[in-house]
């Protein structure tokens, strides 16, 4: 009984992975999202760092930021696409009329985000190592894996918040899918340490999990983190936000069923 209901839940979750994979494969702009813009961004940052002669470690600092931004943005977009593809196709009501839960939808699309984000990470890392001699191979595999998990969890949280905003504010909130990551990365120190931020922004940065994941990874390049346990801080914050967003997603879905937002987004 338990096994068959688990299988059923898995099938429901994988339905959304299946849909995202096909929609991604059929849309040309997703190739740009995966390769073109991340590579352009990384190349520009790398060249700028080389020109400014900032040194090997500082170059690593900003390149890790550029890679992280691309990986998070890609994985987050996939999570958001679970709603966006349906909104664009005006088929959202069919998805919400099925017995799949919001969690099935988010998890299924997150799986695709992780795959796409991981592929981008491999390509961008290889590019950085080959073109800019970024020293990544000496980082322990476990640390790298934990850092990546941190990035993907961050992507899930940002994707969830974009979906929640869409269920609350409708099509007006679509823009959140492309802007939320940039705003968050601005505060969490993508190209600079958070210590350079004004005090109030530094407090905000410390409340964002990815700040700690970046600090954890950059510690391998000689940059000291703000907290003694950045990884623990990052995951603790992530868990807290995950719990909050799960409650918020249920609330926003119920609200969308009450005020007709699901129907409006299907018209």
């Amino acid at each position: 009984m338990f096994f068959s209901s688990l299988q059923k839940e898995l099938r429901k979750t994988m339905a959304f992975a299946y849909k995202n994979i096909i929609m991604t494969r059929r849309n040309f702009f997703t190739v740009f999202e995966t390769l073109f813009w991340p590579l352009i961004s990384l190349f520009s940052v790398g060249l700028m760092g080389t020109y400014l002669e900032i040194g090997e470690n500082k170059l690593a600092f900003i390149m890790i930021g550029a890679i992280s931004l691309s990986v998070i943005q890609l994985a987050q977009l996939d999570v958001t696409y679970v709603l966006l593809f349906d909104v664009w196709s005006k088929s959202l009501k069919y998805t919400f009329a099925s017995p799949s839960s919001f969690i099935n939808m988010l998890m299924g699309s997150w799986v695709v985000g992780i795959i796409r984000g991981f592929v981008a990470f491999l390509i961008l890392s290889a590019f950085s190592i080959y073109v800019f001699n970024l020293n990544m191979l000496s980082i322990p595999a476990g640390a790298l894996a934990l850092f990546l998990i941190g990035l993907f969890v961050t992507a899930l949280l940002i994707g969830m918040s974009a979906c929640i905003l869409m269920l609350i504010f409708g099509r007006r909130a679509e823009i959140a899918a492309w802007t939320l990551t940039a705003i968050i990365m601005l505060v969490c120190g993508i190209y600079y340490p958070v210590s350079v931020l004004p005090f109030e922004f530094r407090l905000v940065a410390l409340a964002i999990p990815v700040t700690h994941f970046l600090e954890y990874f950059r510690a391998f390049y000689g940059f000291s983190p703000t907290t003694s346990q950045p990884l623990a801080a990052g995951f603790a914050l992530s868990l807290m936000y995950l719990a909050i967003f799960l409650i918020l997603s249920e609330w926003s879905l119920k609200r969308a069923r009450k005020n007709g937002m699901i129907i409006k987004l299907s018209e």
């Binding site: 059923k8 839940e9 099938r11 429901k12 994988m14 339905a15 959304f16 299946y18 849909k19 096909i22 069919y94 998805t95 099925s98 017995p99 799949s100 099935n104």
Partner: peptide, 14 residues
């Protein structure tokens, strides 16, 4: 085919 497969999976059926 893909559409029916997707909805079949979303309904948890084989």
């Amino acid at each position: 085919y893909e559409c029916l497969k997707f909805f079949g999976m979303a309904y948890g059926v084989k």
